[in-house]
Design a protein around this nucleic acid. Structure first.
Length: 260
DNA sequence: ATGGCGCATACGATGCGA
């Protein structure tokens, strides 16, 4: 099965692009971030017409996540535990059934955290600690579990074309990468890193400064796999050609293939 | 070397992103 993650930067502005990509790539399950609309405004009909079930956790103007799945969606979770005062729509999790058993998928839009230091950076680090605790709970279930989304973390210098441009940025600060390593250390596999140790593979290019034309990209969209999911990993790819389509998102889809 | 964009809201200008 094909599982993808894609920060679309507004699903309403991107619906034609999104349906074009869905028809081309034919993924079985897609985690979307930054849909930037309330649940009622999500273009559900256009997506369902392509054969997908939809779980939406929307928010006005900002954030918002959704999961699209060809298989029926079971057991939806709409929030990341650990802070009842957190109103941002940044987490949705589902379980779907496959021929090889159930797969649990968490879709995250991890806070950007800039400017750092400051309250936004504190929020990011707090969110990452909540995510670590939640991931630990899910790993204890010993299921096939995929944690996918826009992590807003550049894991290593080789994940940026110009790492020196990011040294003071919330996406790349030492504390951010340390929190990332604590997450990985639970026993999660970074799917793209497992498939390619070399680096130079990016998932985001800023709209500004000709970043795309110069390939000034960063890798911040990730799929992390539990051991039971990693055992089934067959392939990983980044659909970077989508960045050259008309009116693109600044992120592109990342896709993994799991056995059966 | 520098600066360069795009979205939502609202209809001008600001917040936000990365």
């Amino acid at each position: 099965m094909l599982i993808a993650t894609w920060n679309v930067n507004s699903i309403k502005s991107r619906i034609d692009l999104a349906t074009r990509w869905l028809q081309e790539a034919r993924p079985d399950l897609v985690c979307l971030q930054e849909i930037k609309c309330v649940d009622e405004a999500f273009p559900r009909a256009e997506i369902e017409a392509l054969g997908y079930n939809v779980a939406v956790h929307g928010q006005k103007s900002y954030n918002g996540v959704a999961i699209l799945s060809r298989a029926p969606i079971e057991d939806v979770v709409m929030r990341l535990p650990g802070d009842d005062a957190d109103e941002h729509a940044r987490y949705v999790e589902v379980v779907v059934s496959t021929d090889r058993g159930a797969v649990r998928v968490g879709c995250i839009y991890l806070p950007n955290g800039n400017p750092a230091p400051g309250p936004k950076y504190d929020y990011k680090l707090g969110w990452m600690e909540r995510l670590r605790r939640h991931a630990a709970e899910r790993l204890a279930l010993e299921e096939a579990f995929v944690l996918a989304g826009d992590f807003n973390v550049i894991p290593a210098p080789k994940d940026a074309k110009r790492p020196d441009a990011w040294v003071d940025d919330a996406l790349f600060l030492p504390e951010t990468r340390a929190a990332w390593r604590r997450l990985i250390a639970l026993g999660l596999t970074d799917a793209l890193r497992a498939a390619d140790e070399n680096g130079g593979v990016y998932t985001f290019w800023d709209y500004q400064a000709g970043a795309w034309q110069k390939d000034h990209g960063i890798r911040i969209d990730h799929l992390l796999l539990s051991p039971q999911a990693a055992d089934r990993l067959l392939a990983v790819r980044v659909d970077r050609h989508v960045r050259s389509w008309e009116r693109p998102s600044d992120h592109v889809p990342v896709v993994i293939e799991l056995a059966a």
